[in-house]
């Protein structure tokens, strides 16, 4: 699989303090790559380094197979970006802003501006000055600007900030569509786990400037699979019964003494029946599903994987 972006030991320090430390990202062509992390994790700085706005202190960045240097201007023509917040020339209209963008990018297909307005649902208000736009509208306009030149790589830093739930869903669908139909690779950062969970193919979890994990969502889905949680005072005995009588070994005993059974091959009622027959005192039984939030928090807390 071709990589659109690769970083090797990417590091950025300010006054001796590393805000991004030895980050190795591998973004594959045609995927949606989600960067997760709390505020100050270093996500924006990584994005700024990829777009050449901030220069790395150490390490290197490879984009479209070429090493990024201070003078790699031509690579920027293949990207669409929103970094930090969408910034515009506020006195100009939305259309004028996009026309200027196309001129600077050397992109001369005027139809693409109308298409972009349509895709982000801003049709009809493109003649309004940007200063009259709400934050949500600016976000949409920022996305319109980023996609109007049909880039190969879309870099979106917290793109759903300020959007209402309907707007979030519309943009989520738009990102999926851009990825699927136009083959655009998307690097997206967010601290809203649920959003990333819904669209990303791969996630990178960052904290304190470090990349804690880069993992495919398929893998996360396995880690956050459904499980049955049994609360009992005799967890060791229960585990023994499960193993001996039901041949269930995918079992984990939590610190609180609860038993979690993953990929349970038999119905819950059957399970209960066997345990009761073997005199295991059961206090409660729940069917649960691990969320990305659990997974994310477990990585941030430095623990293993908690499902």
């Amino acid at each position: 699989m071709t990589h659109i972006v690769r970083t090797k030991q990417l590091t950025r320090a300010y006054r001796g303090k590393e805000v991004v430390s030895n980050v190795n990202l591998n973004i594959k062509q045609g995927e949606i790559y989600g960067m997760l992390g709390p505020n100050g994790a270093g996500k924006t700085t990584v994005m700024k380094m990829i777009t050449n706005l901030v220069k790395p202190t150490a390490g290197e960045i490879e984009i479209f197979g070429e090493r990024l240097t201070d003078t790699s201007f031509q690579l920027l023509a293949r990207m669409g970006t929103i970094i930090e917040r969408p910034i515009f020339y506020e006195k100009l209209t939305a259309r004028e802003n996009l026309e200027l963008h196309c001129e600077y990018m050397g992109y001369h297909n005027k139809k693409s501006i109308d298409e972009a307005f349509e895709l982000v649902n801003l049709k009809g208000i493109e003649k309004k000055a940007v200063k009259e736009f709400s934050l949500g509208m600016k976000q949409r306009l920022g996305i319109a600007r980023a996609i109007t030149t049909k880039p190969e790589l879309l870099i979106l830093d917290e793109p759903i900030n300020g959007l209402d739930p309907i707007g979030i869903k519309e943009l989520r669908d738009l990102f999926k569509m851009l990825c699927k139909h136009y083959g655009i690779t998307i690097l997206i950062s967010s601290h809203i786990l649920g959003e990333v969970e819904l669209i990303a193919d791969t996630i990178a979890v960052m904290n304190d400037g470090k990349l804690l994990q880069e993992v495919s969502m398929d893998h996360v889905a396995k880690q956050t699979a459904e499980y049955i949680e049994i609360t009992t005072n005799e967890s060791s005995k229960a585990a023994f019964v499960l193993e001996k009588h039901l041949h269930i070994s995918n079992v984990r005993i939590t610190d609180e003494g609860q038993i979690r059974i993953y990929d349970c091959p038999i119905p819950q009622s059957e399970l209960m029946k066997v345990l009761v027959l073997q005199d295991v005192a059961i206090e409660a039984v729940h069917k649960k599903k691990g969320s990305l939030e659990d997974y994310f928090l477990s990585i941030l807390n430095g623990g293993g994987i908690v499902a």
Partner: peptide
């Protein structure tokens, strides 16, 4: 001051 220079510096122009 208004950070619009970041937009300008992301164009494929020196």
């Amino acid at each position: 001051r208004e950070r619009s220079i970041t937009v300008l510096f992301m164009y494929p122009i020196p």
